[in-house]
Amino acid sequence: MGSITLSKITKTFGPKEVIPPLDLQINEGEFVVFVGPSGCGKSTLLRLIAGLEDVTSGQISINGEEVTLAPPAKRGLAMVFQSYALYPHMSVKKNIAFPLKMAKKSQSEIDEKVTNAAKVLNLTEYLDHRPGQLSGGQRQRVAIGRAIVREPAAFLFDEPLSNLDAALRVNMRAEISDLHRQLETTMIYVTHDQVEAMTMADKIVVLQAGRIEQVGAPLELYETPRNKFVAGFIGSPRMNFIEGHEAAKHDAHTIGIRPEHLTISTESGAWQGKVGLAEHLGSDTFLRVDAGPLGELTVRAIGDVKVKYGDTVFLSPDPSKIHRFDAGGLALR
């Protein structure tokens, strides 16, 4: 139940190649996140799996069965859309029951499943409401309810949290993770937010311009990014990249060092610079330091560091955490 295999799939819109030949294996029960900047093809990839778009070439199989040409309804997948896509003219109950009604299930089975789903998602008292009367988070839960009653082979999520405010987003993130633990069903989740990817995924697929840049567990991507793009995309604040003389010292075209792997001191250190911007959050301090020939470096220090704009500071990188890249951007190991 729930393995998906993409082999050599491509997608072109007119003359524009959105997905060059791409292979990907998604195992049963995995929580896979597609992440990448907007326009990287992650949503298109999801829609190809859903069957909402035709692949131009290649094959898609679900549980070993080829579904490349099957319409969405026949693939046994459920999808939660960015806008939730609830049916505004139906009550919450009817929304959740809709896929069951389409599958021509008996009324008693429909009632039972809808009741259960509502219980799991804390929607019981809203069953007779219309989507318009619900808050963003509740709508999101209805959309998830509509997906789970079908007991699909896999869930597809298309940026489901991007319409929620920050606090709610953190909650829903946890809820979706909980749901995954409970159901143990394969989930594919598309987002442009690397924090969502890092916190939720078993496996992250980093995409750029339709190509897979790297596939791996969250910490694997953080610790051993395969190239400069992944190194820069995963992790926040972004990794600092230094070229030229300093990089040559490490036998590389470019070296990368994450803001949290720089130690700051007001007395001595490897590199000297002037504080450009200091953000004091209490728990952390984020600094932008103009380090002369090295360029601007971002630094993250734990706790509060008493420096301000214009101060001279010294930075020392943790030598074991320096990433090295060649001229083509590939990581050197």
Binding site: A50, A78, P88, P99, M102
Partner: peptide, 11 residues
Amino acid sequence: EILEASRMDGA
């Protein structure tokens, strides 16, 4: 998206 949702739902 709403029509797509219905398609995913088996309509």
